[in-house]
Amino acid sequence: MDGMFDQHWLLEAVDLLVRVVEAAGILIIFVGAMMAFVRFVIVGLRYRQSKAFVPIRLTLGRFLTLGLEFQLASDIMRTAVAPTLLDIAELAAVAAIRTALNYFLAREIKQERREIAELGSPGSADSNQAGPGRAS
Results as ranks from 00 to 15, higher is better:
R46N: 11
R98Q: 08
K110S: 07
E69H: 05
F104Y: 07
R134K: 12
P83I: 05
L86F: 14
E22C: 09
V20F: 06
E90D: 03
L11A: 03
S74N: 07
I97D: 08
I42T: 14
L60R: 07
F53L: 12
Q129E: 12
V18H: 08
A33M: 08
R46F: 06
F63N: 03
R114D: 05
R114T: 04
R62P: 00
M35D: 06
L105E: 00
Q7D: 05
N102H: 12
A52E: 09
M77K: 02
F53T: 03
N128Y: 02
V41A: 02
D126T: 04
G131N: 08
A106E: 07
A135P: 00
L68W: 08
R113S: 04
H8R: 15
F63E: 04
L17S: 10
V20I: 15
A33K: 04
Q49C: 10
E90L: 13
F37T: 10
A92N: 11
T59D: 09
I28R: 04
L119W: 01
E118T: 09
L105F: 08
V38L: 10
R57M: 11
R48Y: 08
G25C: 07
A100C: 09
R113I: 11
R113D: 02
A93G: 10
I28Q: 10
A130W: 02
R48H: 13
V20K: 06
A117G: 02
R107L: 13
F37S: 11
L60G: 00
V43G: 00
S124P: 00
V43E: 12
R78H: 01
V14N: 15
A135Q: 02
I26A: 10
A80M: 11
L60S: 02
V18P: 05
F70H: 10
E90Y: 05
I88T: 13
A92H: 05
R78K: 13
A24I: 15
F104D: 01
V31M: 08
Q49G: 05
R113E: 03
A23T: 15
T79F: 06
A100F: 12
L17K: 01
F40E: 07
A52I: 13
T59R: 14
